[in-house]
């Protein structure tokens, strides 16, 4: 299998980071995020931990423009170009090289696996690389190659999660946002999926932000992370060890 350990892809030095500052957001009159600030530096795997309903998905949706923050800033730095993402449409944000694996996967159920993957390469920058990216994801997930003609809606949960991750990779992203890959999957499949994402991140020199409530799974990929409680960052762990040793996390996740 090909391996790219230096932070280069197709000869270009890639540098990409996200900075989220004092973001407030919600739905209608319900405030969900209260002044959230996080950063994701180039090449990092950052995890956003928090149990159900604390605002993880809302924050991810703010980054991709699905939810518009009422205050605060979200900036993307790619190869020295800084873009303010607030107010941009999701398709334009995705066009800058951010891919999102949404909670619940959101495949196109009546399209085949391959058609789903091809749509992943819709953005202009990804189109010239469609053939090699398709080879790459089929190499990564051989199961999808076998099932390329099957309707996505008729696949098992684990296979659908593979399609969702593979489809995001087809857009050749610099930053990959993954929202709760563990939902609805057996623990063994979650472990495999997280290991795969970690491997992909290294191979493709991507920057990863993953929202997850399953601490024991998320910690496997984390360089560092945040804990979000009731829409506020309650703890910031500078390393995976910090996260593991933190009392609050133990209380929340490890039943200590």
């Amino acid at each position: 299998m090909r391996s790219f350990t230096i932070r280069k892809w197709k000869g270009r030095i890639l540098a990409s980071s996200l900075t989220i500052t004092d973001v407030e957001a919600g739905y209608g009159s319900v405030r969900v995020l209260h002044g959230v600030s996080i950063t994701v530096e180039d090449g990092e795997s950052v995890v956003l931990l928090g149990s159900n309903g604390n605002g993880k998905s809302t924050l991810i949706k703010c980054i991709t423009g699905i939810v518009r923050p009422s205050a605060g800033a979200i900036t993307l730095d790619v190869d020295g170009v800084t873009t303010d993402l607030v107010g941009m449409a999701p398709q334009d944000i995705v066009g800058l090289g951010i891919a999102m694996v949404p909670e619940g996967r959101r495949l196109f159920p009546a399209l085949s696996v391959e058609e789903n993957l091809v749509l992943g390469a819709f953005r202009k920058e990804a189109r010239p690389m469609i053939a090699e990216n398709l080879d790459f994801v089929f190499e990564t997930f051989p199961r999808l190659k076998e099932r390329r003609g099957q309707l996505a809606g008729s696949m098992s949960g684990g296979e659908q999660q593979m399609v969702a991750v593979a489809r995001a990779l087809m857009s050749n992203p610099k930053i990959l946002l993954v929202d709760e890959p563990s939902v609805g999957l057996a623990p063994i499949l979650v472990s495999q999926m997280i290991a795969k994402i970690k491997e992909l991140k290294d191979q493709r020199a991507m920057t990863v932000l993953m929202a997850e409530q399953n601490f024991n799974q998320a910690i496997k990929i984390a360089d560092r992370g945040y804990v979000i409680v009731h829409g506020e960052i309650a703890y910031e762990g500078a390393t995976a060890e910090d996260l593991s040793n933190n009392d609050m996390i133990k209380e929340y996740y490890l039943g200590a």
Binding site: T64, I66, A89, P90, Q91, V94, G95, A99, M100, P102, R106, L107, F108, P109, A110, L111, E115, L119, G120, F122, R123, K124, A126, R167, S171
Partner: peptide, 14 residues
């Protein structure tokens, strides 16, 4: 073909 299946997911494809 995809747009009526999941409009938001299509936006996430760019």
């Amino acid at each position: 073909m995809a747009v009526s299946q999941d409009r938001l997911a299509l936006q996430l494809m760019g």
